[in-house]
């Protein structure tokens, strides 16, 4: 049953997480998020007045700018920008500040696999730091199907290269609720079981995909808890004054 991973992790084990917020001086919100050696810096500016051309002026508009570690952006980065933008649009409340644009700038510091999920987590932390109204948080995870049929979570660059297929999954975070247990359900399932974004590469069977979703979802509970702990810590720091 055991799968050998290069770094000795178990298949469902994530790399160590680290997140710090409000690290940049000029942006209205910023965060750095790292999973192992993968590190991404996110900055949020706005909301600024006006929307871009071809955008709905009755809603808040988002733009995502992806800055790779070196060189210029290509097709892959454009795709990442698009995925990130759609993800952000679905987790933010768009009607509070209509006719405004919020810029999210993603700077890749180091890429060691699971880059897009790392960027989504960073962007989410930066949006919260900037105080952009959000419906809920998003937690992203990369699931990877190894050639021997096992699902491994949060792969590094080497594992990503060797895999047969991989899926980037984004789930809503686990929320605290004063509602009675089991009342926050949508179509018979708890809200945190919904999928916000799903991107797959390579070939995988339907069963394998569902296995990925199940394993990924199980891991997001700890990611959600990490998010919450991080916010509580920074709150404690700032509320000492009050």
């Amino acid at each position: 049953m055991e799968v050998d991973r290069e770094d000795g992790r178990t298949p469902n084990q994530l790399r160590p997480l680290a997140c710090s917020r409000n690290i940049l001086h000029r942006p209205h919100g910023s965060a750095s998020w790292s999973q192992g050696d993968t590190k991404v810096l996110a900055a949020v500016y706005g909301p600024k007045a006006g929307t871009k051309k071809n955008e709905n002026a009755e809603k808040a508009c988002f733009e995502v700018i992806w800055k790779p570690k070196t060189g210029q952006i290509g097709k892959v980065e454009k795709e990442y920008e698009m995925i990130l933008k759609r993800t952000i649009q679905s987790i933010c409340v768009l009607t509070v500040n209509p006719n405004t644009t919020t810029s999210v700038i993603i700077q890749v510091v180091h890429d060691d696999g699971s880059l897009l999920p790392c960027a989504i987590n960073a962007a989410c932390a930066a949006l919260v730091d900037a105080g952009i109204p959000m419906k809920h948080l998003a937690v992203a995870i990369c699931c990877c199907l190894a050639d021997n049929g096992y699902v491994v979570l949060d792969p590094n660059k080497l594992e990503e290269k060797k895999m047969t297929a991989l899926a980037y999954l984004v789930f809503p975070n686990t929320t605290l609720s004063v509602l009675p247990e089991g009342s926050s359900v949508a179509e018979g399932e708890p809200v945190e079981h919904g999928i916000i974004t799903s991107v797959t590469h390579g070939v995988m069977s339907v069963d394998d995909y569902f296995l990925c979703v199940e394993n990924g979802r199980a891991a997001t509970a700890s990611l959600s808890a990490f998010f919450r702990k991080n916010f509580q810590q920074s709150q404690r720091d700032s509320s000492k004054a009050g």
Binding site: L176, S222, R228
Partner: peptide, 26 residues
């Protein structure tokens, strides 16, 4: 890490909340 976040607390007043937390039941 704790995974007990999905339990229903009686009141969240004075606590740190994150986006999406249901704080009041009307």
């Amino acid at each position: 890490m704790s995974t007990e976040v999905s339990t229903s607390p009686t009141s969240l007043i004075g606590q740190t909340v994150v986006p999406g937390d249901v704080v009041l039941d009307l």
